[in-house]
Design a binder for these strands. Sequence first.
DNA 1: TAATTTAAGTGTTAAAATCACATTTACAAA
DNA 2: TTTGTAAATGTGATTTTAACACTTAAATTA
Lengths: 229, 229
Amino acid sequence: MLNNYNTEDKIIAAVDCIIFGFDQKGLKILLIKRDFEPEKGKWSLIGGFLKKSETFDNAAIRILNRLTGFINIYMEQLYTFSKVDRDPVERTISVAYYALINIEEHNEELIEKYSAKWFYVSKIPQLIFDHNEMFERAIKRLRRRASTKPIGFGLLPEKFTMLQLQKLYEAILDKKLDKRNFINKINSLDILIKLDEKDMNSSRKGSFLYKFDQKKYEKKLLDDFTFKL
Amino acid sequence: MLNNYNTEDKIIAAVDCIIFGFDQKGLKILLIKRDFEPEKGKWSLIGGFLKKSETFDNAAIRILNRLTGFINIYMEQLYTFSKVDRDPVERTISVAYYALINIEEHNEELIEKYSAKWFYVSKIPQLIFDHNEMFERAIKRLRRRASTKPIGFGLLPEKFTMLQLQKLYEAILDKKLDKRNFINKINSLDILIKLDEKDMNSSRKGSFLYKFDQKKYEKKLLDDFTFKL
DNA sequence: TAATTTAAGTGTTAAAATCACATTTACAAA
DNA sequence: TTTGTAAATGTGATTTTAACACTTAAATTA
């Protein structure tokens, strides 16, 4: 005899995404002005509801894609939030994800269509529901993760300078780093490709561009290598 | 006008607990023989369903308490599993938690009542649904967490010897540690209280017992102290 | 009560990683 | 060709980690 769980409560499950981006001035997240009640007009994370036929990962990708147009970005499940009254309309649980995107490549039109806006992480407004809590957890996780896995590269353009990379890590880790020590450390990891090209925007001398060497990194992983910054 | 989410899918939400314990021979988890279909008779994590009126944390505590009688133990949300067909009966998502308990104090009767059994982590049988995957994720998390937070103490009796503590960390981290280096390291953290008592079971000389000094640890935390093992 | 047995307790040294720090170089613009 | 600007580069001091073996305390037994 199959038990059919008939007596169990059913609830609505949502997904919310903390989308990180990075520009010269620092780390940001993408927020939207909520266009429906409750809390219409307030700032909110990007979210949506789970369909019966998909996983939370699927839902997160679907939702992120709808807003940004991106299809292949770093995304990780963060935590599941379930305070009973977190959504005033109805009992809803929400699985939060965080994503890292290259801010230069996002789709302007979509951003506009959804009245989305980038906010520096030091200036996040009050958000609906428990979204501030979600953000706090996300940035904590990002800080830990970025110092043990090379996920940060997802926030940069494909080609970047050492200084950009350093500024990125300074933004993520929220502390100043020493230039020489940083470069020495990165070089010792030996997971970047130094290109012949230079970025001539920042100085007369120009600074060399680098790429992250995904293949080399994966090969090293097999050899018990750990990224540690 | 309040949107009421009427058109959204509703699903059943479950909680599953990976319960860690520790004895002289190593790290273990508590499993039960499932007494209802589907998969009746197979080994499974301890689980239950989320009620509309509780959070996942509440549900996890309730479920754990029903089985072990414990009320105040280290427990942490791990990950949310949502493969569409993970439960063959019905679409169900499950939030996994892991808990650390002092194996000596658990309630024998309850264990028997639920046909529960301890399994060494190196000898976990095939479990129902995606429970093996849950276990793998739990032990990975435990390993990381135990080396940055002093959670391991939850697995030991209140008073313990240095050797017990070392064996515990060897079991968690799954590697041999050097006795002198381990003691030096622990002592340098300065978060244990050395008692006047000795444990005379293990040797003629007897070995001193220690307690974890929660208050001192918390005070140090304020001072930007990090546990690192 | 002296000798034996057993695990507990204890420090030092070498190697590696981290940290602090200042000058030279390449290039464009004037 | 001189000047201005940011990029590029290396060394020594300090701290942390890792390897390693003998002495001590106490119960047991001869």
